[in-house]
């Protein structure tokens, strides 16, 4: 018994010893980012080639849970960089005082002008419901049609833990304003389940459990490029689509300031940005021109793009969340 315990201690201590030989940069991110099929592995390799360091990408649930995780850990967090919040969470994240301002001049290619002094975007896209064209004959053209087709089962994410889930709250608020409760009441019978994160929801959809899943207009590109399968499509809604801009920032009391800055620079470099479209299946934040695969349809027109700036989003969040909780718990 004693031997067993000693060898365990040995095992645990050695694992941390061998890692401490080089500088380590710890990046908290969402689960799907670090998965084998996500951007994580390629990005880790690419950054470690240029930094002489050990990049640890740590999955901490989905985007919104990531923020709560940081609040919980507070000043003691091990993270040096947090990657994977979005514009809807920026105000709340700044209130924590945990994030450091950046001093970079950014040359970005985004549908909106970027002037945030703390967070730097690394990809963007539009939320959309993705479906399998083989299974659905009449595709809904807007939320009202979706609520009318009660036989369509949808999977969505919890807005408290997941950024797509929160994005859907914002989408419906942006499209319907005070009428949003009617849409939610209409949607409730369609909702098969509410998952904690995007990965689970998409997994359920791929298993055929649901007809539509809340994801992005760019998700079908994955099936076309990686699987040569053009049956998965994004339903284009005539109310417009809510835009998500995913962001990252440095933790203010990191002991790896230089390395963190280097990572943020790398994040908006061409190397990182070319990896993003075909691994995270989102639009890059810089202009890649021909390097962006044709499967990425051009973004939807600007007049169909819905978006709340961070402050409005923060103001809308609480009310929309309470409304959602009350309607869905019935």
């Amino acid at each position: 018994m004693k031997k067993l315990i000693f060898s365990l201690f040995f095992l645990l201590s050695t694992s941390s010893f061998c890692l401490s030989e080089v500088n380590t940069l710890k990046v908290y991110t969402y689960d799907s980012f670090v998965s084998d099929w996500g951007p994580g592995p390629s990005i880790e390799k690419a950054f470690e080639n240029i930094c002489d360091c050990d990049l640890q990408l740590i999955g901490a649930g989905d985007g919104a849970a990531l923020l709560a995780k940081l609040l919980l850990e507070g000043e003691l967090t091990e993270a040096d960089v947090v990657l994977g919040l979005d514009t809807n969470l920026i105000s709340r994240a700044k209130e924590t005082g945990l994030f450091a301002k950046h001093s970079k001049t950014l040359d970005l290619n985004l549908p909106i002008a970027w002037d945030d002094d703390t967070f730097i975007p690394f990809d963007w896209g539009y939320f959309a419901f993705v479906y399998n064209a083989k299974n659905i004959s009449s595709v809904p053209n807007n939320f009202k049609e979706l609520t009318n087709q009660t036989n369509l089962r949808i999977v969505i994410q919890d807005p408290r833990s997941s950024t797509p889930g929160l994005g859907l709250l914002m989408w419906i608020k942006a499209a319907y304003g005070d009428e949003s409760n009617k849409i939610w009441k209409g949607l409730t019978p369609n909702i098969l389940t509410v998952t904690k994160g995007w990965s689970e929801a998409y997994g359920l959809f791929m298993d055929g459990e649901a007809d539509l899943v809340l994801s992005y207009t760019t998700s079908p590109a994955y099936h076309i490029i990686a699987e040569n399968d053009s049956s998965k499509k994004a339903a284009i809604f005539d109310e417009g689509h809510y835009m998500q801009i995913e962001v990252a920032a440095k933790i203010s009391n990191t002991d790896q300031t230089e390395l963190a800055d280097k990572f943020l620079d790398f994040m908006v470099s061409e190397k990182f940005q070319t990896i993003i479209p075909t691994t995270n299946w989102m639009y890059p934040v810089i202009n890649l021109d021909a390097k962006l695969d044709k499967a990425f349809l051009s973004p939807i027109p600007k007049n169909k793009s819905l978006y709340f700036d961070p402050i409005t989003a923060q103001e809308t969040r609480k009310e929309a969340l309470d409304e959602w909780l009350e309607i869905l718990s019935k």
């Binding site: 649930g61 919104a64 849970a65 923020l67 709560a68 995780k69 609040l71 919980l72 919890d158 408290r160 833990s161 909702i191 389940t193 509410v194 998952t195 904690k196 959602w324 909780l325 869905l328 718990s329 019935k330």
Partner: peptide
């Protein structure tokens, strides 16, 4: 469980921590 329709008190305590802090 986990969706608003199937949340127990203990799970809600967890969510208050891990989702909203």
């Amino acid at each position: 469980g986990g969706g608003p329709k199937s949340t127990t008190i203990e799970l809600a305590i967890y969510q208050a921590f891990r989702y909203d802090f």
